[in-house]
Nucleic acid binder design. Structure first.
Length: 257
DNA sequence: ATGGTTGGCATCCAA
């Protein structure tokens, strides 16, 4: 079974890239982020034509997440399911076959010290509680998505420069570590311990992809039981080379399950 | 210090 995460930065703008990639790669499950489309306008037909069931949670203009799966998607949940929290369309979770899948688009944080930065940290605390709860019932759980935190110096192109930048501050890394310490394995790091492997290259740095000025902020985490069956995890650079690419590229993990 | 690019029920906001 292969599971992938891909921040498409607008599913409608990315349909040519996405459908081409689905056809060529044929993953079993795909978690999408930044679909940037309200549910009524989601391109259901195009996704189903590619051979996938689909479940989505979106709003106009910003955010939005979706799950694509060859197998049926059961008991989908969206958001924190807490009326105290805004429904900003960052979380979709479902049972797919033997795996419980949690797909998240973590808040970017915008600027250190801003209201949105504090929201991001509070959101990670809240996600900690959600995952803690789900882990009680699901031995085979995958948490994947645009995590919007680079965990170590190996995961950004210039750690010194990034030290005070959003997505790489100590508070964000600590918040992520607290979630990982629930007992999750970063599948990519099971196979690759070196630096220079990224999943996101900013549009607004000229030729950032060609110069490999990137960040590894798209991750696939698995519970120990599942991570033990993980046979590979790779960043697929190809779609970032295609015409009108997303600023992110997919990450794919394979499991013997 | 600032800019650069991309997307969207847009002519600014978010990333």
């Amino acid at each position: 079974m292969t599971l992938a995460t891909f921040n498409v930065n607008s599913i409608r703008a990315r349909l040519p890239v996405l459908t081409k990639w689905l056809t060529e790669t044929n993953p079993d499950v795909v978690a999408l982020q930044e679909t940037k489309v309200e549910d009524a306008k989601f391109p259901i037909a195009e996704i189903e034509s590619a051979g996938y069931h689909v479940s989505f949670h979106g709003q106009p203009r910003y955010n939005g997440v979706a799950l694509l799966s060859k197998a049926p998607i059961d008991s989908t949940l969206t958001g924190f399911e807490d009326p105290e929290w805004p429904t900003d369309c960052r979380i979709i979770a479902a049972q797919i076959g033997e795996v419980y899948v949690v797909n998240t688009y973590a808040p970017n944080g915008t600027a250190v010290g801003s209201e949105k930065y504090e929201y991001k940290l509070a959101w990670f605390e809240k996600l900690h509680d959600l995952l803690y709860d789900r882990l009680k019932d699901h031995e085979n759980l995958v948490w994947l998505g645009d995590i919007n935190v680079a965990p170590t110096d190996l995961d950004v192109f210039d750690p010194k420069k990034m030290a005070a930048e959003v997505c790489f501050t100590s508070r964000e890394k600590d918040a992520l570590k607290k979630l990982v310490d629930l007992g999750l394995t970063d599948c990519f790091r099971k196979f690759e311990q070196g630096g220079g492997h990224y999943s996101y290259w900013e549009y607004f740095i000229p030729n950032s992809f060609q110069r490999n000025l990137g960040w590894r902020i798209d991750h696939i985490y698995a519970t120990k039981a599942l991570a033990d069956t993980c046979t590979g995890c790779e960043i697929d650079l190809e779609p970032r080379r295609w015409e009108r690419p997303s600023d992110h590229t997919p990450v794919v993990a394979s499991f013997d399950i």
